[in-house]
């Protein structure tokens, strides 16, 4: 009995699975902890960070427990890398319907799954999406992209906007720092997702480890669609890499210079006060969206200067899912 939710394809009859979130139940894959969430809190969409979807909107952030990766630098290891059985006492229990009701109660425009990997909780997320769709609440997520072809399509069915982590560009990097043997499924899935939903891509950069792969990543993104926003994250040394050096900001930024000539939406952040979080018009270079970076404590929209998603200087269309949403817009319209 194999789980087909990610490329580990764990045999569930052989004890605990890699992520610890599924079991074999009469020949079917079943969730061990359905409808259990580690958080539900309102946050700015930029803090996730989605930069090109519903700017300024209020998102309800959710997550579960467990992960199918073991990134050495995981910043959520206290929830993602623990045995899910050990953290159940901190979880909240909400049915899909109740979670959507909560999003409405909190005046949220959308729901974003971003603490751990959605592949480990797909049936619960399916149930949430059923109600979210009824209520017209869009859903987004962060994923490491290690899903199977079938479950990638499930992701695309649940989520209309997806942030995919492309953590390096070699099998060697993925093997050593993430714990999986091949990057191929991730590249395949990025392509698939780009055809079904709005995507943004995030790559953590570790000096002298994967910074030489940045150009290959940029070229790969460009081949799919140069308008895909690419977030390059300065590594925040955490978990097993706590003792690592903080990457040199100027040097890493220089390494992105050539990619900026063919990818118009490159952002370099995950550190406080970054100078590289504004959106510039791809044609005339005017600032069309101003943001403020607070590093991993969350970015925020400062000014949206592209009404109708169009550069007010030259009229060029800015790639965007939806358009600016006021922080209190949803609440004023729908909530008590």
């Amino acid at each position: 009995m194999k789980c087909n939710f990610c490329e580990h394809k764990c045999d569930l009859t052989k004890g605990k699975s890699f992520c610890g979130m599924y079991k074999d139940e009469g020949g079917k894959v079943a969730e061990l902890y359905p409808d259990k969430w580690c958080t539900y809190s309102p946050s700015r969409i930029e803090s996730v960070p989605f930069y090109h979807a519903y700017p300024g909107s209020r998102s309800m952030i959710i997550g579960t427990a467990g992960c199918n990766f073991r990134c050495k630098y995981c910043s959520n290891s206290f929830i993602a890398c623990q045995d899910p059985a050990d953290v159940q006492d901190v979880m909240f229990e909400f049915s899909g319907e109740k979670l959507v009701t909560m999003a409405k109660k909190l005046g949220c425009h959308n729901i974003i799954f971003n603490v751990n990997e959605p592949a480990v909780s797909l049936p619960s997320l399916m149930r949430v999406s059923e109600y979210a769709k009824k209520e017209g609440i869009p859903m987004g997520c962060l994923t490491n992209g290690y899903t199977t072809e079938e479950s990638t399509l499930m992701l695309a069915e649940i989520f209309s906007f997806v942030h995919v982590g492309l953590k390096g560009f070699s099998n060697a990097f993925y093997k050593k720092y993430v714990g999986v043997n091949s990057i191929d499924p991730i590249l395949r899935n990025i392509y698939t997702l780009s055809r079904h939903c709005h995507i943004e891509i995030a790559s953590p950069v570790i000096e002298n480890v994967n910074d030489h792969e940045l150009t290959e990543i940029a070229e790969f993104i460009c081949d799919i669609n140069p308008e895909i926003p690419w977030h390059v994250f300065r590594l925040l040394p955490e978990h097993d890499m706590k003792e690592s050096k903080y990457p040199d900001i100027e040097k890493m930024n220089k390494a992105l210079e050539s990619a900026r000539t063919y990818l118009p939406y490159i952002y370099f952040h995950n550190f406080v006060g970054s100078n590289w979080v504004n959106t510039l018009c791809p044609k005339c270079g005017a600032v069309v969206i101003k943001r403020f970076s607070l590093g991993c404590s969350g970015d925020r929209l400062d000014e949206f200067l592209a009404p109708g998603n169009v550069c007010s200087s030259c009229g060029t269309k800015i790639a965007m899912l939806g358009t600016k949403v006021g922080w209190c817009e949803k609440r004023e319209k729908e909530c008590v």
Partner: peptide
Amino acid sequence: SFDRDAEITKFPF
């Protein structure tokens, strides 16, 4: 606190 107008971005730090 989340119902305050978060678009007022004073004192971001």
